[in-house]
Design a protein around this nucleic acid. Sequence first.
RNA 1: GGGCCUGUAGCUCAGUUGGUUAGAGCAGAGCGCUCAUAACGCUUUGGUCGUAGGUUCGAGUCCUACCGGGCCUACCA
Length: 570
Amino acid sequence: MARILVTSALPYINGIKHLGNLVGSQLPSDVYARYMRARGHEVMYICATDEHGTPAELAAAKAGVPVAEFCAGMWQVQKDLADGFGLSFDYFGRSSSARNREITQHLAAALGRNGLIEEVSEKQVYSHADGRYLPDRYIEGTCPNCGDENARGDQCENCTKQLDPTDLINPRSAISGSTDLEVRETKHLYLRQSAMRETLDKWIDSQKGWPVLTTSIAKKWLHDGDGLRDRGITRDLDWGVPVQFDGAPWSGMEGKVFYVWFDAPIEYIGATAEWADATGAGDAAWERWWRTDKGANDVRYVQFMGKDNVPFHTLSFPATMIGSAEPWKLVDFIKSYNWLTYEGGKFSTSQGRGIFMDQALDIFPSDYWRWWLLSNAPESSDSDFTWQSFQGGINKDLADVLGNFVSRVTKFCRSKFGETVPEGGTYGKAEAAVTDEIAARLRAYQDNMEAIELRKAAADLRAIWVAGNEYLQAAAPWSVFKQSPEDAAATVRFALNLIRLYGVLSAPFIPDASAAILSAMNAKDAGWPEDLNAALSALPAGHAFSTPDVLFAKIPDERREELEARFAGA
RNA sequence: GGGCCUGUAGCUCAGUUGGUUAGAGCAGAGCGCUCAUAACGCUUUGGUCGUAGGUUCGAGUCCUACCGGGCCUACCA
């Protein structure tokens, strides 16, 4: 038995996430966590909301509530949606928690003591009307290069030229439109990542088998231009982790907070500590996952994230951990995902384009979404959600291949033998052959799960379902029954055991349907089939079951067309 | 501008270190079955592997150029 720490990138707090966000980190990490638990490993699966930063403050202001209140409310919304999608976090924390504040301040102090934090004086734009400093992208004006009037302070979208806010002609606040702006001198702490470039480079090089997407982004940042740059880790904001040094004010940093990217990944640790608090397990319980001097040496730590998050997880966060010179557990494998697009274009929060988590759960069961998103996950490149593809995948894979198999077996049995596993007959070549077939598919399934190749694993799982239909078709108990009810009974008995097996194997992908299957089969043992032959005789003759309702209702064309129109966007 | 990824049957994708007749699912066609959610099974049509060169006994796989799609480029997180 191994110990596996799994973290999903933290969803930002400012609103409800769309399916692209879901498939990029939460959903695949959940499948992995569920699979590893099913294999008997000890799993700690952590996620949390990422709550700090300007967008959260603005979203709160727009909603007309204090930011702390806004975040608390939105945390609950996201928690409920996560539950709705069956995300099996051991703990869903908050980056604004006391634990994260404490650990973030602790790590900053350690970095400071090790000479890895530098005070830098820089110029920032202050907006009097908004009463806040403005991040570069929240300043708009005329581009000095192309004359576009809606250039942002970091880059002109029109001509793609990178800009400084001070380059803009007639700059204004993107929040209020105010032109009452002032460039102020302000001091900030910088993390001296440049000093750790070689360390990080060697660390990245020592990792084996990481996705190309992960390492290529890290390498780019390490070697681009002058190499890895230092980064500001503080901001002039109210909402965040206060900048302190060992609990005392950090001289010159009064009233400032740590920048959200600094404290967000630390919340992986913070949330594990929150879990320990919530369960009353004590500090040793979370430290054995995170401190190599306190038991974390045998932990395998796997992170899941969208590609936008890769620089923070390959460089900034490791720089924080390594730079502290404390024995923190570092990540062993970083699984990164490309984007999911919607009908050929981008999901857009602002334009209401695409499908959001709350809407998705309103129209179909979470298993539908889980299955389609995971069996089409953007693992090797961006992938496109279309209603046509979704409808096809659900109807064919779930309804026809799996759902109908359960249906035809249980209903046939009920009509001929009643709702108990029938006795009589013996297994022969057909049963041995399909067992061999499934054994081979199962090995592939397991290998792909271990390697976190979830698209391939989904295909393997589907092939295991198909094997059941092939077997049943060849055995044809409905015609055999007329001559030899005993032989038909053996086939049905075997097929009922296949159903139970499918319930077990499918659980990481479609947990609700799996639970329904296992419940209908009245299965007491839902353990992973370490011994396939034993697993296929788990339901003995005489075992009572119930015939389940339709497991997966099909999506008719009219329904699909209606949804296509409804989600076409404004 | 720079960097990275990607282009394989109508569609979505597999194709380990270059090695026999390029695979799967969906869609299409034919046949079978009738237990089942008009479901299932079998057979089958379909590809000059983006283009042009090169390396090699041998290239979907390696190299170069070009064409197309996408992402990143550090103050969105």
